[in-house]
Simulated assay, not measured.
Amino acid sequence: MTPKVWCIHNNEPSLKLVQDGFVSIGWEELGDLAELVSNKEALKTRLLDTFPDAKPGAIPGWAGTLRRFVLDMQIGDIVIAPNKSDRTLSLGTIAGDYYFDPSATLHPNRRKVTWHNTGIPRAQFSEKALYEIGSVLTVFAVKRHANEFAAALEPKSNLNAVEAEPATTATNAAVEDAETAEETPNASRVEEFTRDRLETILRTGLSPSEFEEFIAALLRAMGYYARVTSYSGDGGIDVIAHRDAFGLEGDIIKVQCKQTISPIGGPTVQALLGAVAEGEKALFVSLGGYTRDAEFLDRSKHALRLLRGTDLIDLLLRHYESLDDEWRQRIPMRRVYAVDVVSGSD
């Protein structure tokens, strides 16, 4: 039987899901869910008694979430765990039945997971697949792009995005509960889509030299004077920035730009430090992340800063209005308001 594919949104960064091998949901106030979820109407009544101030329509949705987590998810099913803090996905398989951890003060409702492929950059998946897993629900079955995520279960799988045929999905009841919420736009989903789209533009819509020009433009939008160095023989320095017009006052910042989502290692970062003179600062910009040895350099060298893809998108969104007209035309955005729909006590 083809395993189902599930996505679980966990908004508690303090939980070590990958290190400790589990996924979890909240609703701590309900206690052990093992017997409570067997009767859907009794579960709704318990939820209403426990959360009397719940918004209209929230109770049926919460009941569906709890039943999917405890009853519908089966051992061997595939689970996707998005990490909002570093914008990566981790993929694993359910390794055990539901259990309640009485020693856990946060998210005691858990399922054991064997993680197969962790910390995958979101950019390795299609935008449509990423939009599907942006559902407002805490626990839901992935239908339209299940095969794309299943193919990425092993680290060396082919991650070329395709329009996947739906894999076997959850029970009719679970699908019925989730259908509307999965399709409903919400503030979080719009934000994730915007960030995914910006990352795609920066990664595939610009040449390497244009990416360097963009970094210089962003630094100018932040109040620096910045210029791109010669594209050949630059010694690894792609952009030079400083606060005054002539670069004679304050620190000189030497920037290296990598238009990649692959982790940058310590030796590459150390090479940048080797090109920085006394009194100068080093800034490494990447669309991805960094290895542990590179992170150690970031912590131990006061003249060094590592800029990750998430940091770069944050700065772009924060300083967009100050960008040159050329770049606002190439990366068109406008300010909008979106209804912030929340999934509940997860």
Rank of each mutant, 00 (worst) to 15 (best):
G274N: 15
G279R: 11
V276M: 10
V255E: 03
S232L: 13
A277R: 15
G265D: 15
G233D: 08
I264T: 13
I264P: 04
T268P: 00
A241W: 10
E278D: 15
A241S: 11
A241R: 03
V255Q: 02
E280K: 06
A282L: 10
Y231Q: 13
L248G: 07
E280W: 08
S262F: 04
K258T: 01
G265M: 01
A282C: 11
E249H: 10
T260Q: 06
L273Q: 09
V269S: 04
Y231G: 05
G279C: 11
V228C: 14
G266R: 14
T260K: 03
T229N: 10
E280N: 13
T268S: 14
D251E: 13
G265N: 15
L272R: 09
A282Q: 10
A226F: 08
I253Y: 15
K254Y: 03
K281W: 07
E278L: 14
I253R: 10
I252H: 00
I261F: 12
F246V: 00
V228D: 01
F246L: 15
L283F: 13
V228S: 09
F284M: 15
G279M: 11
T260L: 01
L248H: 06
G266H: 05
G279A: 12
V255M: 05
T260P: 03
Q259P: 03
T260N: 02
P263I: 01
H242N: 09
S232C: 00
Q256N: 11
D244K: 09
D251A: 14
F284W: 07
G247S: 07
L283K: 10
S262P: 00
G250A: 09
L273K: 13
I237Y: 03
G266Q: 12
I240N: 00
P267S: 12
R243G: 00
L283G: 04
I252F: 00
C257G: 06
L272C: 11
I240P: 01
Q259T: 01
G247P: 04
V269D: 08
E280V: 06
P263W: 03
T268M: 10
A241K: 06
Q270H: 13
G235R: 09
Q256W: 02
S230V: 00
I252S: 07
P263G: 00
G266P: 03
A245I: 13
G274R: 13
D244S: 09
G236D: 06
Q270C: 00
P267R: 07
V269R: 07
P267G: 04
V255L: 06
G235F: 11
S262G: 01
V255K: 02
V239P: 05
G274E: 13
S232K: 14
A282N: 11
D238Q: 05
R243Q: 14
R227D: 03
I261R: 07
K254F: 02
A282S: 08
D238H: 12
G236V: 03
I253K: 07
A275I: 01
P267D: 13
T229R: 14
T268W: 01
E278Y: 13
Q259G: 05
E278V: 12
S230T: 10
G247D: 08
